[in-house]
Design a protein around this nucleic acid. Structure first.
Lengths: 178, 178
DNA sequence: ACCCTTAGGTCTGGTGAATGAACCTTCGTC
DNA sequence: GACGAAGGTTCATTCACCAGACCTAAGGGT
């Protein structure tokens, strides 16, 4: 959100968080990172975001400690963007917001469903597994799959094509899944 | 966030949610509504937001079903803005995002702490009460108080002044607390 | 009658950020 | 030595945000 120029005024942890992940596209980039997207061009094609904006957001997220750059080849140097530990802790807020959007802002329900990989149970509204008990399931133990009630369509980029079948979160996807 | 013009592209509940509460200021307005802020001028003074932007955001949140207008006097007609049921369900995402901001984006820790009104226990990282067990505590049962470790300061609007002492969420605050 | 205040806005001009398209660089391959 | 992939940068245009002035409708004081 980068609320204008100075924002020290808001003495609030929420405002601080929004300065990091509240800007246009930022949270969608983080979501894609949970889906396993790592490369610039995959983010670009899946989000349909202008290149200059993607560059700016990725750099901001790296500077904020949400993502880190990890080289995957030399000559020419290429790197992917991966979630840091702080980034991984965004799973809770992100899942809950997504859940809210599925209930209150998506007429026909969500496009994707999330389940505990160990037992196959769908996550509840705080992201916990009803069957296994305990607290919220960490993202590494979550599988996403398309909602069969939604006839998926029209998107045609490598990431969207990969996501038509069940996919564990954080597992590299699209170009990086070589 | 209102991601530009057309955004039907993103077949994702998160994108839908961000269209509603992802724009600049929107989530801070919702946060203030949880704090008990109801009136236009109180939002204005507490957030330091331009009047025209506040008007636009409040109308958008009402249109999205997050807030509703409730008259509190006739002649001249005046109304406050209150959370709807859908708005109240934003407590989970909002609390978790705030919590994340307190841990990863606020150098000296959060300015406000949140506890279960029934037993005084601070909420855990998903917003549940460790003592009473069960799921997340609904906002109506939460009390906020300033963090004693933070020497609060400089803000001087009616809402900030009211929040220096413990305050139950959703209870009318500032001008509306007559 | 006159002026001031409160509450909740609208209007306007200037500025900064987002957008889409084109271009650039470094390498590997045919 | 042409071509393409990957990951950017540069550019002109559009759009949203910003601060501040102005507007309306009612009540209160003198």
């Amino acid at each position: 959100m980068a609320l204008g120029t100075d924002y020290e005024l808001q003495e609030c942890a929420l405002a601080r968080a929004l300065e990091v992940v509240g800007e246009r596209w930022s949270l969608l980039i983080v979501r894609d990172a949970f889906y396993g997207v790592q490369r610039f061009n995959d983010f670009l094609a899946h989000l349909g975001i202008p290149r200059a904006v993607l560059t700016a957001r990725l750099n901001a997220l790296v500077a904020a400690g949400v993502l880190r750059k990890e080289p995957y080849q030399q000559a020419p140097l290429r790197h992917g963007y991966l979630l840091t530990d702080a980034g991984l802790e965004l799973w809770g807020p992100l899942y809950q917001l997504s859940r809210w959007g599925g209930r209150h802002a998506t007429p026909d329900g969500p496009h994707h469903l999330f389940a505990h990989v160990a037992c196959g149970t769908d996550l509840d509204f705080v992201g916990a597994c009803h069957t296994c008990g305990g607290g919220p399931v960490p993202p590494a133990e979550v599988v996403m799959r398309p909602n069969p009630a939604r006839a998926d369509g029209h998107r045609d980029d490598p990431v969207s094509r990969a996501l038509v079948r069940p996919h564990p979160l954080l597992e590299p996807i699209a170009s990086a899944a070589a």
